[in-house]
Design a protein around this nucleic acid. Structure first.
Lengths: 221, 221
DNA sequence: GACGCGCTTCTTGCATGCAACATAAGCTGT
DNA sequence: ACAGCTTATGTTGCATGCAAGAAGCGCGTC
């Protein structure tokens, strides 16, 4: 086995996760080990290990002796995960507000300027990216690595990328969202942990409501 | 291979996790795959899968081509995890307060009575169990399975059982802790989500401070 | 005596083979 | 035609073999 492949194999879990989150396999579809092994030019063993991890993350379901299936979160699970998201991001905003001037703060200021520009030009593609960046900047700015880890896991479980696209389209939502972002940033700048947490939770709650207004595609789970 | 062993193998991950959390292997010690395989009468393959999961959970560290080591959370990580604990349990209390009369509520009332009895008789063994039960009852009572999952993962990362024993011994702490439990329960009974969340967070925060007053055993990480 | 180099040994990482099981198709008898 | 059973196939689950790398030990040299 060539060493270049060994380096690639390091990210096998991420690759397969990307396949699932990217929607390459529709929810409910099977993920045969043999196929993935051939696809990534490794044997079934490392593929199996990766799939077990994905099952642990809740992205796939392994039915013993039957096969591995892409799992879509149920409507209930989405609601539950949004509640968690609200809590974790609130904590992140609170922690960030307690810190002094950090690199993340200026990143947030820049982000808001770009976001408002994107609103004016109706560039929803850029806006989507900026929103994602805004939230992650706050999480990283909390300076709490374990929080970031749990947050990442949570977002993977939500298959968030599949969801946000819809909410962006809601008319008026992006303007409101930007206002909420500004409110959060102001509270952080004022070093008001409680205010920042509250503003963040309000924002996440509002955006969750938006994401949940349209029904989830398939609810067979 | 006998079928009875197949049934046992189902819980192989839990068994190995129990070994680590139970302190059978001191932090920093190696966990040779071959030994575990022989110990549980399986081959190295399923052991490897379990160890990878444990690494994902943060309980062990797999150094490639070297070995698997029991990982002890750093002091910083413990602080970070307690911040998360505070947030998640606050959310749980808030959600439980929003629900009506639930089986969990009466369980909590019973728990408090037993706890107060344990305080009077200085039965710290029983008290420790009751505290654990109190917190888990609230988390389960939140009726949010994803929250419970993340909470369990968090508690495993904290290796909580190793920690609590110390704080119990602090004079006066168990009385204060019981008072805080009562405050939380009252807020839940009054269906006051915000009050319940605040009371819970205060309680977790206080207990965290207690757990962190004594230095962590080995800080080699 | 101390330092550096090579080798031995122990560990993991992966590939592969085989067995077990679930599912579904086909077949037979009624 | 239909129900029940048998068989065929595809999948996973695990055991094992082999190779590659890392750490420690000993030996030789300075």
């Amino acid at each position: 086995m060539l060493s270049v492949e060994a380096a690639e194999r390091q990210g096998l879990l991420e690759k397969i996760r990307g396949l699932v989150l990217g929607g390459e396999f529709p929810p409910g579809a099977v993920l045969p080990e043999a196929f993935l092994a051939q696809e990534f030019e490794v044997s079934r063993t490392p593929v199996r290990e990766a799939l077990k991890q994905l099952q642990n993350e809740g992205l796939v379901e392994i039915r013993p002796k039957v096969g591995t299936f892409v799992r879509e979160p149920t409507h209930r699970e989405i609601i539950e995960l949004f509640q968690l998201k609200e809590s974790l991001e609130g904590l992140a905003a609170s922690l960030l507000a307690r810190r002094g001037e950090t690199p993340e703060l200026s990143a947030l200021r820049l982000n808001l300027e770009d976001s408002e520009a994107a609103v004016l030009t109706n560039d929803s593609k850029a806006y989507s990216r900026l929103v994602h960046e805004f939230h992650w900047t706050i999480v990283r700015g909390s300076d709490n690595l374990k929080l970031a880890e749990h947050y990442e896991r949570l977002m993977n479980q939500l298959a968030y990328q599949r969801l946000v696209l819809r909410t962006i389209e809601h008319p008026g939502r992006i303007a409101a969202s930007t206002r909420e972002h500004r409110a959060v940033l102001e509270m952080i700048e004022h070093k008001d942990p409680f205010g920042a947490e509250t503003a963040m939770r309000n924002h996440v709650h509002a955006s969750s409501r938006e994401a949940l207004t349209e029904p989830v595609r398939s609810l067979r789970n």
